[in-house]
Design a binder for these strands. Structure first.
Length: 228
DNA sequence: GCGACAG
DNA sequence: ATCTTGTCGC
């Protein structure tokens, strides 16, 4: 029984997955991994939560940097058309995330996504997908590994361990808090791993998740109760 | 052939 | 992600 059957959702059409895979390969050619050329003053975090099996609530939180004070929080509620399939998360969440992003009065210098950037089977995780569509520096911070191997980083906050896949360095496993499971940091687009790791660390105050994604996660739960 | 598999 | 109770620790 395929893994996605765990969720009470329809099995994706093999032909559709083949088409989406090809689309990811085309998008991958446009990805740019480089040291960002910004003066980071505004950073945004985003996250999505689901209501039922076909509705999604996406949130964007804008924070000042390095103070990390909340300046804006917006959301958009809509429908989802595709089921969740590992490796194709962006097609399910990106459409609604873009609509939420448009509601921000001020646009961020950098976006932190709850998911992977290039640490993906075809180097096109949701952070990278979103970054290409917005043409803006973006990075990913995921709670679980998708692909690649790594050795457990030390238990102290700040410990880092490389995440490798097919001979490539695709991300960093970062301990953002003492004795707590690490997060997986990766470059998304117009961004590089060293900068992403450095910023993820600078945004990790007293919790496992860096403030941008932690707060986006928090407000997603708050707004969700308003929608219901 | 047998697992693993972001949110 | 979501469904769920009590429980350990700062």
């Amino acid at each position: 029984m395929p893994y996605y059957r765990r969720f009470d959702q329809p099995a994706p059409d093999p032909a559709l997955l083949a088409r989406l895979t090809e689309q990811q390969r085309e998008m991958q050619r446009r990805v740019i991994i480089q040291k960002p050329d910004f003066n980071l003053k505004l950073i945004a975090g985003c996250d999505s939560s689901f209501v039922g099996e076909d509705h999604i609530l996406s949130v964007f939180v804008l924070l000042s940097y390095p103070e990390l004070e909340v300046l804006e929080k917006v959301w958009h509620y809509g429908e989802v058309e595709l089921p969740y399939v590992p490796g194709f998360l962006s097609f399910r969440e990106a459409p609604n995330l873009l609509k939420a992003y448009e509601k921000l009065q001020q646009k961020p210098d950098l976006i932190m996504v709850d998911g992977h950037g290039i640490s993906h089977p075809r180097r096109l995780g949701i952070a990278t997908h979103l970054g290409l569509q917005l043409n803006k520096p973006i990075m990913g911070v995921a709670k679980k590994v998708l692909v690649g191997r790594y050795k457990e980083p030390d238990m102290q906050k700040g410990a880092v361990s490389p995440l490798e896949h097919k001979g490539e360095l695709i991300g960093n496993v970062l301990r953002t808090k003492d004795n707590v499971k690490p997060v997986f940091v990766s470059a998304g687009h117009l961004m590089d791993l060293a900068s992403a790791t450095e910023i993820a660390m600078a945004c990790s105050v007293k919790h496992k998740l860096p403030e941008p994604t932690r707060l986006a996660d928090h407000y997603a739960a708050v707004f969700k109760s308003e929608v219901k």
